[in-house]
Amino acid sequence: MTYTAWILLTASLVGVSCGIVGVFLILRKMAMMADAISHTVLLGIVVAYLVTNSLSGIHMVIGAAVAGILTTYFVQWFHAKGVDQGASIGVVFTTLFAIGVILIATKVGNAHLDVQHALMGEISFVPWNTVSVPLLGDIPLATLMLIIVFVIVLLVIGLFYKEWKLTTFDPALAASLGIPVLGMHYLFMTLVSVTTVASFDAVGAIMVVAMLITPAASAYLWTDRLLVMLGLSATFGVISAVLGYYFALWIDTSISGSMAFATGIIFLISFICSPKHGALSNLIRPKAGTEGQVHRPS
């Protein structure tokens, strides 16, 4: 594959995986959790580097994953103790991210690890860091990780689709049917953490947040059906990756930043043009008879 093809494939895998997971974040009203995890993984990366004194290896992924999962558990623990969920996310997110920044400034020294790289990523370097895979040959490490995560996301969402649906829309009913609602919540947040970590090194925190939230928010405007929403969100993620890449080439700017910008453009188009929930349709459609309707995917 060519250099451009590897970049587009990697970014598209980020868009698909984050798009699918992001739908449930939107429906569960936990969009800010994506921002929290995508930043707190910085602490895990820094700690892993301080322990091993190396910027490459599986230990970096493990450190980031542990930090993401700890973020989830801390937020849930504070929320269970009576703290508002938004406040819990804000406290945990800012505290752990700040610790990561302080450690970078005081302990890392001259290593190539900084906040700018963590926030923006550098997807243009992805094709150069390759590993040899039987039958596939040399493949970028970030792409291989994202392929594995994509398969995991499909398996977990597919195998427990009914459970995700019930626990998302009616947790009380799910609990009465014997579904472990809290266990499903932690499983889902672990999936969010793993997806975020796999995407983090290649594209940075900003694009991870954009891909987790914006395609799903755009899809939410176009349909009331969950399966269709999942498909649309994944599709919007891929379109954003491709459009963003060529836009970055056109004006010679950050690839990840341009891809994040593309997700915003797609959301703006959806917000204006969606036939059922768009701004134009709301202006044109008579308001009579719309009271009491609930927008809830099925």
Rank of each mutant, 00 (worst) to 15 (best):
Met1Ile: 06
Thr2Gly: 15
Trp6Phe: 14
Ile7Gln: 07
Thr10Gln: 06
Ala11Gly: 14
Leu13Asn: 01
Val14Asp: 02
Val16Ala: 09
Ser17Val: 05
Cys18Phe: 03
Leu25Gln: 05
Ile26Ala: 07
Arg28Met: 02
Lys29Pro: 01
Met30Asp: 02
Met30Val: 03
Met32Asn: 07
Met33Leu: 13
Asp35Ile: 05
Ala36Arg: 04
Ala36Asn: 01
Ile37Leu: 12
Ile37Asn: 03
Ser38Trp: 01
Ser38His: 01
His39Gly: 04
Thr40Tyr: 01
Ala48Phe: 10
Leu50Met: 13
Val51Tyr: 11
Thr52Asn: 09
Asn53Leu: 14
Leu55Arg: 11
Gly57Tyr: 07
Val61Met: 09
Gly63Val: 03
Ala65Gly: 07
Val66Lys: 02
Thr72Asn: 10
Phe78Trp: 00
Phe78Glu: 03
Gly82Asn: 06
Asp84His: 14
Gly86Val: 04
Gly86Phe: 00
Ala87Trp: 03
Thr94Met: 12
Thr95Lys: 00
Leu96Ser: 05
Phe97Ala: 06
Ala98Met: 07
Ile102Ser: 13
Ala105Phe: 00
Ala111Pro: 10
Ala111Met: 12
Val115Met: 13
Gln116Ala: 15
Ala118Asn: 09
Leu119Glu: 05
Met120Gly: 05
Gly121Ser: 12
Ile123Ser: 06
Ser124Asn: 08
Phe125Arg: 14
Val126Lys: 06
Pro127Trp: 04
Trp128Thr: 08
Val133Leu: 15
Ile139Phe: 10
Pro140Asp: 02
Ile148Arg: 03
Phe150Gln: 03
Val153His: 02
Val156Phe: 11
Val156Tyr: 07
Ile157Trp: 08
Gly158Leu: 13
Leu159Asn: 08
Tyr161Leu: 13
Glu163Phe: 10
Glu163Ser: 11
Glu163Gln: 14
Glu163Leu: 03
Trp164Asp: 03
Lys165Val: 07
Thr167Ser: 12
Thr168His: 10
Asp170Trp: 09
Asp170Glu: 14
Ala172Cys: 05
Ala175His: 09
Ser176His: 08
Leu177Lys: 13
Gly178Ile: 11
Pro180His: 10
Val181Tyr: 08
Tyr186Ile: 06
Val194Gly: 00
Val197Glu: 01
Asp201Lys: 14
Gly204Lys: 11
Ile206Leu: 15
Ile206Arg: 09
Met207Tyr: 10
Ala210Cys: 11
Leu212Ile: 07
Thr214Asn: 11
Ala216Gly: 07
Ala216Asp: 04
Ala217Gly: 11
Tyr220His: 10
Arg225Gln: 09
Leu226Ser: 06
Met229Glu: 06
Met229His: 01
Leu230Thr: 03
Thr235Gly: 10
Thr235Asp: 00
Thr235Trp: 01
Ile239Asn: 07
Ile239Leu: 15
Ile239Thr: 13
Ser240His: 08
Val242Tyr: 11
Leu243Ile: 13
Gly244Phe: 12
Gly244Cys: 13
Tyr245Phe: 15
Phe247Thr: 09
Ser256Ile: 05
Ser258Gln: 11
Ser258Met: 13
Phe267Ile: 06
Lys276Arg: 15
Ala279Val: 14
Ile284Cys: 10
Arg285Ser: 00
Lys287Gln: 08
Thr290Asp: 05
Gln293Lys: 13
Gln293Val: 12
His295Ala: 15
